[in-house]
Design a protein around this nucleic acid. Sequence first.
RNA 1: GUGAGCGUAGCUCAAUGGUCAGAGCAUUGGACUGUGGCUCCAAGGGCUGGGGGUUCAAGUCCCCUCGCUCACCCCA
Length: 416
Amino acid sequence: MKYNALKGVHDIFPPDIYIWQKVESAAEEVFSAYGFQEIRVPIIEATDIFTRSIGETTDIVEKEMYTFPDKAGRSITLRPEGTAPVVRSYIENHLYNQPSPQKFFYSGAMFRYERPQKGRFRQFYQIGAEAFGASEPKLDAEIIAMLKLFLERLELKELNFEINSIGCEKCRPDYKKALSDFFSNKISGLCPDCNRRYIHNPLRILDCKVDACIKLRKDAPQVTNHLCGDCKEHFEGFQALLKLLNISYVINPNMVRGLDYYTRTTFEVTSEHLGSQKAVAAGGRYDRLVEEFGGPPTPAIGFAIGMERLVEILRNQNSELYTGPKAFFATIGAKADTESFLIAEKLRAKGINVELGYGNASLKSQLRRADKLKAAYVFIIGDDELKSGRIKWKNLKDSSQGEIGIEEIPDFKGLN
RNA sequence: GUGAGCGUAGCUCAAUGGUCAGAGCAUUGGACUGUGGCUCCAAGGGCUGGGGGUUCAAGUCCCCUCGCUCACCCCA
């Protein structure tokens, strides 16, 4: 019987795992500098948490969620995204009673039942950040700056920052109507998908890739021209700060985010080094969501980074991240084997990476393995060495050799 | 859910319908009885994704199925 991993899920192991670890530690480091603290929320939640936040008619909710009844018949869903659970936690734990703004980051697996393709999987990982309790554009700009610093820390290049504002509950209905009016006499020219979009979410027509639709929407009203006074002021304030920070960006008025809860600022970071799924990170404001979830009115903003997409880029530009053991003990005979085992324990207790020979292998094959592992030093212990108490060491990089007293190994300069 | 491409050794790939399906790399061992890399030698490793059909003969042609990949939809 041969078992395979399920469609759209993947094992992560060396050498890729080193890239993942590098990304995770960079996130923790950079986000902490901005006052974000880690939060860990469950992978399963009540289904309502997602249907109500993401939107009943979005594709995620309609056909992509892993939803099932638990043994008591409750509807459970594997989280398809991270914002809703964090919002739930924020309210449930009364975190709004802490000084505002409260900032959190998280990292973990998300699940969406989709056909896999490059940069898209059924179980995928996101690093996300959410900040609650401040509506100023300063927070929006801070979030972008943090994302940029994080990406720079990883030496990612050739990334595009796109921003937009999709207004609030006051101005968006007007814009939606203007858009519907504009397309009302063009429906027959739109692709079948856009005909559906026209009914459910006319905003989506704006990012259709069909040529005919692109032509028809050329003179469509732009959301940035339909913002109310407050939203306009917010968007301009946001941009002014980005300019002060020397962050280059483009306004993409056609950028529509897929989740219903977004308000005002939305943004996306894309890379040309990916396939069709080129968004590495994306996010936006969701000033109404906390209140809709039964919390106090609380403006908020967040984003998520697609781990696999990030790793995909890093894999093609990163040098070797693996470092081998500092010491390798090659032994001849049972007594030497035991002796090396005891010395290794002492070194490991000091945090030194030590590897041992196994399985009665010949000295030659032990050295070969040490070389494959990229060990820095090999210590050779046989009967002669045990008798004299002088252990042979060899530097595998420059082939230099020498001897050292068995008791002095923990202080050997090459290991410390 | 829709469309296209591809499935041969751990990996990358060969093999006009015709001997026992091969090579390079990787793995293990040896040449070198206690010194890695380089070189040379050898070994292990395959239900050619699975099933059915055509044929004297199928890795190769046909059908079905499963899987992978890419794209659409949508999204990180």
